[in-house]
Design a protein around this nucleic acid. Sequence first.
RNA 1: GCGCCAGUAGCUCAGCUGGAUAGAGUACCUGACUACGAAUCAGGCGGCCGGAGGUUCGAAUCCUUCCUGGCGCGCCA
Length: 605
Amino acid sequence: MRLIFSFLPCILRLNAETHENIMTDTKTLYAAYAGTIENALEALVAEGTLPDGTSFANVTLEPPRDASHGDLATNAAMVLAKPAKTNPRALAEALAAKLEAHDGIASADIAGPGFINLRLDPAAWLGELEAINRLGDEYGRSTMGEGRTVNVEYVSANPTGPMHMGHCRGAVVGDALASLLELAGHTVIREYYINDAGGQVDTLARSAHLRYREALGEDIGEIPEGYYPGDYLIPIGEALAKELGDKHQNEPEEEWLPYFRAEAVEKMMDLIKSDLALLGIHHDVFASEAALHAAGKPDEAEAWLRAHDLVYDGVLEAPKGKAPPEDWEPVELPLFRSTKFGDDQDRPIKKSNGKWTYFGADLAYHIQKAENADELIDIWGADHAGTVKRIKAAVAALSEGKGTPTPFDVKLVQMVQLMRGGEPVKMSKRSGNFITIADMVDEVGKDVVRFTMLTRKPEAQMEFDFAKVVEASKDNPVWYVQYAHARIQSTLRKALEEEGVSPSAANLDQLGAEEITLIQRAAQFPREVEAAAKAREPHRIAFYLYDLATDLNAFYSLGNTAVEKRFIVKQDKGLSGARLFLADSIGQVLRNGLRVLGVEAVDRM
RNA sequence: GCGCCAGUAGCUCAGCUGGAUAGAGUACCUGACUACGAAUCAGGCGGCCGGAGGUUCGAAUCCUUCCUGGCGCGCCA
């Protein structure tokens, strides 16, 4: 069987006879009805209404745009009319007739160009409410990923200083994406690539040595040009002085450089890890570029590429457009044929001094990652957009050459403009004077930083205004979602303490249309998880949670003018128990969503 | 000159990978608290989805081409 519904590739094995088990099953409601539709379509195939082998890949099951249209809508008739050589409405009638015969389906109406709108028996939605309660933290988990291992590489900041604002968005997006893919049934490796082999780490080592001499009492004066000036190196120098005494103070550079480099990188990584921990981020693997070189991986890759005529020795043309640099000289270098894959220029994998370029090492690194993963995802800053084509080309060529090609996706995150009350915050990395992640978390808190970074799609630029993100209002999504959760918890506490009532599924049949509207939103969570995971867009979960919070608050407010619509109805413990069961379940979904984002669901605020 | 990303309500942004009458927040106007948390809720106003062609039952979404803004364009990382 090929598939099927694009958002639920692997849960659709139900057959019609098991329908009555749907509500007691672990399958969530959308998955169950997607299965029902698929069965109906297969029946049409068996009857000859649809040709054998018809693909259902474009068939969707969604909530209708307008609630008055019903509970669920499918486009099946429109998508399949062409292969069936009929018109959408005729096919819709055949399909609707089959669907209407099912127990849980109250009606199947044809609308517009051929949509089929389904209305479900209320019991179906109440069953979903019980599913949320029963599955708890697991509600929303999907088997979509089929256990495939995905390596998500994110942050990978150079180990030359603390994490600053520029790293923040990629860090949060990468981490949330990793969690999202886990929830969607993948095995995820969170990986960080340490660029500990280039010229920058030599600069770091020299800067650390300078601070070391300073710690030994030397007057180093102003930090000279070409050194990292930041204060964060002072404690590193002090630690090295304490550890080593003065034995490296007056040695020539080649004596101390390798050791200082290794020490400084290690200490910088400790710093970076503690910064990441402030954001709740922990990687599984820290891969060293130096170790990659030591293992000869780039040489292996080069040999393979040369053998397949994908690397040759050639001369690059001077850059076009802007005036070429004055010191431009044509030099013969080993070049990767990235033009064969749509790049505008072939790219050198080695420098004229014989060392590997970043790209030369990076392609070998990706092959290393592919050894332990079925799919690769990189999260990069948009300033590296120009290098996407070459690395994708190289990975495609190399991974295909070594067997099956490894799917590889590069997600670019755009810059964040820091603001304070509408004014841009100036920062200059050169002066060593920049806003660090530690500063940000200290000022507004981890949850605010994380959630805010996820309230725009990553490939669009965004502003982060220190004043706005801590506002306590509906305009601030972090606050609003947490408020909804706190409100639920407060209600549950109050019900128990003052009325002695707890959530109970005993009287769910007392819940009406307004409650079911809320359940319908909650029931979309598993679907949102799969759609977001498929698109690799964790921000969708943030927007979904905001919508769910809106619905919760709307329902809650009904009780302001109508006491009988409150969660706690004083004279009616049965109804109260059912409503609290609903409240508890909405809280559960909010928690599950927030967990993907790495944001805490607070009980009070 | 080339590449990538963006352009949707006055402003900040969604839009479920091609579906029904394009949605939220904000701002502005109107209404709702002897509170299960009003830091909230309900309603109103507001659109040539940057422009122009095309693809098809159907386009904000896909293709072509312009316009505007951001990022990038030796062997840096």
